[in-house]
Design a protein around this nucleic acid. Structure first.
Lengths: 336, 336
DNA sequence: ACCTATAATGCAAGCGTTTCAAGAAAAAAA
DNA sequence: TTTTTTTCTTGAAACGCTTGCATTATAGGT
């Protein structure tokens, strides 16, 4: 067996070797200016020679900061969320934070459960992406003194900070566009209406525009489903029998399904049926015809959320609880 | 100002309140059986009443285990990788681990840099997804005594554990399929050949089959590009002038681009041009015609990698350094 | 009742940092 | 020089938990 015990080199090893106290080593490690240049140099030399790496866990215990933030995400596999996540990670890195990523499947139980393990791990902050913010969750958030921000999601009760676009207006613009092309029967296709973004905001935008244009709201034109491609693909018969001539769809995968389903059934797009989707992900360009879409700055929503969180973690006062990012619209082949 | 100081409740608070020692509380928290049922009950009652949550950082420092593993990923936004990541996270959760997720963009510098911060954070293990395992990286891995496994990637020098499919054989089967349809000029389209999976394994499979069927290898049929959709879309002119009648593509997004580029230019698929892709992601079904593809159990590769890692972290001896998962093939409209 | 094997518990030394009160050194002022 | 300031350093107490070892109950045998 090997005789060298391979001792881990700690701050005290370095201190002894450099002939200074641990406190001093700590200062040079943390860039504290109160160290005489000569001393600093000597310590750095030793650190280098011994290849010393500060133990972040010990630092965390002593300083009560872990430079780690928790990210609760429904499903990384979904491009919408992974785009946000990417934005989050990039600015986190920029501010020297790391991300603990946990999938929740949008499942309430898992969300609570994950939230608790994150808190146990003493994360400095949390970014939550979810469809539906329940009261229990809101309560847990409040109890934890940890800063939290919702990314790409909104708190109806406006108690927790969040960043997102104005869903009502975005949908209004899309549907208005459709109406201007002469459509009278426009389908509203989304995931669960229990998700406030769908059932509350988007639907409101849809109804607003209908009303403004003197078109009666017809519940038969509202299609509630899940976010899966396949769910959209099989929707055509229902759309046809509802005499829809256009559709606003709340998710790109879903929209791709709707589009393909319609085309596979022989419908001419956009002549006979127009569709506008919501997230402008890569998918919109891969499908034929390409999908017109509301554009959301997904990456930015993530990035801004994280930036916002850093401010909260630094206890910088902020006037606003909500940050609204701009949305846009891009016309492609699926609409006139 | 609020007079209640809101003291954090620690293990010692609980111990006092329950009239036992910290050691005992620690035991019940960790499910150590050496506690009299009555005592356990009493302690649990106090824990519940005081709403005590163990501080994972302190646990980590004391036990030298963080129940956290690092995951180095090129880009979460890419479905190929996020699928792996999802598999990883699911089994991690199953084994009570959390994931620190860090994007590297496949950039060597970032990889090294991220690796180091993960080690500083004392992760119990690391899962690495990368295109190219450099010597420096391999050296760093070795230096760190932390268990590491490569997910969906292979170490040419076979020094670090990994799980993946047999890329050579998978490509052989795909190209054989194309040859059986009478194709003599089959393009090989992939990302950077510097990635061993492309330049080494896949290309080898391609050449093998050509040789076996008496077809000369023509470098003009090898197209090296990046993994972007757009890069595939613009490839058609080149393919046409090389007189290719079919293509094997190493990435789905790329393949979707090739397919759309060809169709947009009027090529009939699969009659005039066949294409087979590699990852069987959702994309393959969204595009028209749908893409025939090699199938890889992406989620499973992630899951198995993590499972493998847990074994290593438990110091269970394992005979194999490499786990090879089965691949498959699914025929869709893009090939005959 | 007495001894022993075993089950429960308690003690206290870490784990590797940070941080604060306080002392030592160096620089500036007198 | 001597005295004040100001700049650097140090010692040692946290931070909240785990764990090996010592100690004390508890139960089983005889």
């Amino acid at each position: 067996m090997d005789s060298r015990e391979e001792k881990t080199v700690t701050i005290s090893t370095v201190a002894k070797e450099a002939g200074v106290s641990m406190a001093t080593v700590s200062r040079v490690v943390n860039g504290n200016p109160n160290v005489k240049p000569a001393t600093r140099k000597k310590v750095l030399e030793v650190i280098d020679r011994l290849d010393y790496r500060p133990n972040a866990v010990a630092q965390g215990l002593a300083s009560k900061k872990t430079t780690t933030v928790g990210v609760i995400i429904p499903d990384v596999t979904n491009v919408y969320f992974s785009s946000l996540a990417r934005g989050i990670d990039d600015v986190a890195t920029m501010y020297k934070y790391n991300i603990i990523l946990a999938n929740s499947d949008g499942n309430h139980q898992k969300e609570i459960q994950v939230l608790n393990t994150l808190l146990a791990k003493q994360v400095d902050g949390i970014i939550f992406m979810g469809h539906n913010l329940t009261d229990e969750l809101r309560a847990q958030f409040k109890r934890a003194k940890t800063p939290i921000v919702l990314a790409g999601s909104v708190d109806q009760k406006d108690e927790v900070e969040s960043v997102h676009i104005n869903y009502v207006e975005a949908v209004e613009s899309a549907v208005t566009n459709l109406i201007n092309h002469g459509n009278k029967r426009i389908a509203f296709i989304s995931g669960p209406l229990s998700d406030p973004i769908n059932g509350e905001y988007r639907l409101k935008g849809y109804k607003n525009v209908l009303a403004k244009n003197g078109i009666d709201y017809d519940p038969n034109l509202v299609f509630e489903t899940d976010y899966r491609y396949r769910s959209g693909e099989v929707l055509w018969p229902a759309l046809a029998s509802a005499h829809a001539t256009a559709a606003f769809v709340a998710d790109d995968e879903l929209a791709a399904g709707v589009l393909n389903g319609a085309r596979d059934a022989g419908a001419k797009i956009p002549e006979e049926f127009e569709v506008i989707t919501s997230n402008n992900s890569k998918l919109t360009e891969i499908v034929r015809p390409q999908l017109s879409s509301i554009t959301q700055p997904l990456y930015d929503i993530g990035a801004v959320s994280m930036r916002f969180l850093t401010k909260m973690m630094n206890k910088e006062e902020s006037t606003q609880k909500t940050i609204e990012l701009p949305y846009g619209f891009i016309k492609r082949g699926s609409s006139k």
